[in-house]
Amino acid sequence: MTVKVEVVEGGVPHSKVMIVGLILTIVCIYLTYLNVLTKTELFSFFGGLAAVAALTWGSSTIKVLCSYGIGTGVPSAGMVSFGSGVIAMLFATKFGILSPIVAVVLAAVIGAILGYVANRVIAMKIPVMVKSLTELAMVGSLTLMGFTALITGSFNFSALIAPNTVLTITSAGLTATTSYLTSYIGGALIATVFLLGAIAVQHPFNACLGPNWTQDRMLMLAVECGFISMIVASLMSMPFVRIDAAIISLIVSIIGWYYTYAKYFELSKRDAAAWLDLSPIPEQEGH
């Protein structure tokens, strides 16, 4: 039996973070559907905002899970989140307008099975394991779906594998072949997005763990990690969506990142023992 070593003290309860995170994520992913309704790609940036909301919720979940003495397992929690999430997300993209809902349900099932296996078969016996892995799988699939919508402008499978025609000159003349290598999945850009999200979801708690952990500082860092990932994701969206849509995503993400990064510095300054520049090690009693 593992003993819980840290307790969540003060701040917003995790269930509230989870509900707000889930609703915001789903709403933002659905807002990218405005692309289809208005026949533009200008609303792609809502996908990035969905990923930011999901990552913030995920970092809070990792805090709950990893309070049970899983110190070195924090990065692994990020990997398991996206490893289970990518399956649900890829399958769900075949369901058109229902994709985000299918992704949530399927990820919950996969996460619950993984949690059951971890607790019963591997016998880790952590009380929140099933619930946390369920949440983490949902976070993984929704973050991937959000970034996918940001980069390709859609969460439909057909947009993810959109092939293009390559003309090659051979001895028989000009031949046209279909190439999937320039698509989001064929070009394996999803691998980059996978790691972007997996590191971003585990980093806030991994960086802020310790006796003076504070919730607002960790959640601010989670939002910051989401926005910095969104910056590079919007750069990677440039070959897929129209340049004005990519630039809107870039501007939104840079503004969000700068604000949260500055805020995080403030909060760290508030919590730190001292904020020194070019100082030696302070003298302490007994050493």
Partner: peptide
């Protein structure tokens, strides 16, 4: 962010 977070949590 990692340095600031880790150090602030050791206050």
């Amino acid at each position: 962010t990692a340095y600031l977070g880790r150090t602030a949590s050791l206050a």
